[in-house]
Computed example of a mutant assay.
Amino acid sequence: MEGRRIALSNLDKVLYPATGLTKGELLHYYATTAQVLLPHLRDRPVSFLRYPDGPDGQVFFTKNVPPGTPDWVTTAEVPRSEGPARMVLVQDLASLMWAANLVTEFHTHQWTADDPDEADRLVFDLDPGPPATVVQCCEVALWLRERLAADGIEAYAKTSGAKGLHLLAGVRGSSSERVSEYAKALAVEAERALPRQVVHRMTRSLRPGKVFVDWSQNAARKTTATPYTMRARSQPAVSTPVTWDEVAGCRSAEQFVFRADDVGPRVRDYGDLLAPLFERRRAAPLP
Rank of each mutant, 00 (worst) to 15 (best):
104 T>C: 14
125 D>A: 04
66 P>S: 03
120 D>G: 02
28 H>R: 15
123 V>G: 00
111 W>Y: 14
59 V>D: 08
82 E>F: 12
108 T>E: 02
33 T>L: 11
134 V>D: 05
94 A>C: 07
17 P>E: 09
85 A>P: 07
110 Q>R: 10
132 A>N: 07
102 L>N: 12
77 E>V: 13
30 Y>L: 01
132 A>H: 06
46 V>S: 12
113 A>P: 09
65 V>M: 04
133 T>V: 05
105 E>W: 15
107 H>K: 01
23 K>Q: 10
91 Q>N: 15
73 V>M: 09
40 H>F: 01
40 H>L: 02
125 D>M: 02
95 S>Y: 07
127 D>C: 01
107 H>R: 04
73 V>P: 05
95 S>L: 02
44 R>W: 06
75 T>L: 07
63 K>T: 12
21 L>T: 14
138 C>E: 07
48 F>L: 08
105 E>R: 11
124 F>W: 07
49 L>Q: 13
56 D>M: 14
130 P>V: 08
38 L>N: 07
50 R>F: 08
97 M>E: 02
131 P>W: 02
112 T>G: 10
137 C>T: 09
29 Y>D: 12
116 P>L: 01
27 L>I: 12
45 P>G: 07
48 F>K: 09
49 L>K: 14
131 P>N: 10
34 A>L: 04
129 G>K: 08
114 D>L: 02
121 R>N: 13
61 F>K: 12
122 L>Y: 00
111 W>Q: 02
68 G>T: 10
75 T>A: 04
42 R>V: 04
29 Y>Q: 08
18 A>R: 15
18 A>N: 11
